[in-house]
Design a protein around this nucleic acid. Structure first.
Lengths: 158, 158
DNA sequence: TTATCTAAGTTCAAAATAAAGACTCAGGAG
DNA sequence: CTCCTGAGTCTTTATTTTGAACTTAGATAA
């Protein structure tokens, strides 16, 4: 992506050129920006779906988990479905809705950034092309699926 | 990405297959997961770099901003550089370090998701290929820069 | 020289949130 | 009939946020 010209420039930018309400990222942050929500979604991606499993895995207070799950269901990222295993009584599964699944690329981007900058050891997660086995990376691509290098990306506000 | 098989399955996943300490995303969340940090980084991407500009733009309490900036500088995402405009006295600019700039793809992924699912109106942000003018999207690509469709992505834990 | 202004903070009381743990409730098992 | 378990709620106690006032260091003005 085109790096902003070296700052300190003569005229610093005093205010973001995009209002918070008009910025998808700011809206997303309102929903996802807290200590637990992204971790809950991470669990959902791994397939952990039951209240007590989430609680035990994350070591999150029950009350907070309850609140967050309600918020995520309310926002349409998770769906709460009753189900029954064998002759067990009815249980509930919190699963990603299509909207939640669509967060996959964001979480992968975050994961790859974390691996590059925060993680010391190697990552146990492998993202590969099923056909060729090649390792995959997050990138910006043209509509026909060709990656564009950062220097060639133009970022504009209209 | 390969959708997990329809759940409720016979054997629900009880625990995430990747420990929190070994997951880049979980580590990243520890650093970025709060109401303000991502918004501060958004400002930094737009080029807003001074304490009072950030404060006015985000309407964030001074104390919180101070704490967050220290954390981001400490973590290496922002660099605090003194600078001087004309004959003004010395001021400080909080700017993205290379590590911070490397979060661009993550923030763009988040932005595009927010635009798809949360935003009602059209987005004022245009991400295009400087050469061809084509609109760009976040995707997973092979090392030679070819996008791989979700169904063809293999997600494995080793 | 003294006063004033401004960017960039710090400090402190009050309000909101989160954490920890006890309690509830329903259905199935012993 | 009693115990167990998953899935919560409730209550009390810590921790964070907020909002507002105060501080500091140069630059400018009177």
């Amino acid at each position: 992506m085109s790096t902003p010209e070296t700052y300190p420039s003569e005229t610093p930018i005093r205010s973001a050129p995009v209002a918070r309400d008009a910025c998808g990222m700011a809206l997303a942050t309102e929903l996802l920006g807290d200590r637990w929500t992204l971790l809950i979604l991470r669990e959902a991606f791994y397939g952990v779906s039951r209240f007590d499993d989430l609680r035990a895995d994350l070591i999150i207070p029950r009350g907070i988990l309850s609140t967050r799950l309600k918020a995520l269901v309310g926002a349409g990222l998770l769906v709460k479905t009753p189900y029954r295993q064998g002759r067990d009584r009815v249980r509930y599964a919190y699963q990603l809705s299509p909207m939640g699944q669509d967060l996959a690329l964001t979480l992968i981007a975050l994961m790859q950034w974390g691996e590059r900058h925060l993680q010391t050891g190697p990552s146990p997660v492998r993202l590969t092309d099923r056909r060729t086995g090649q390792t995959l990376q997050i990138a910006l691509v043209t509509p026909d699926g060709q990656a564009v290098p950062a220097e060639q990306v133009d970022f504009q506000i209209v």
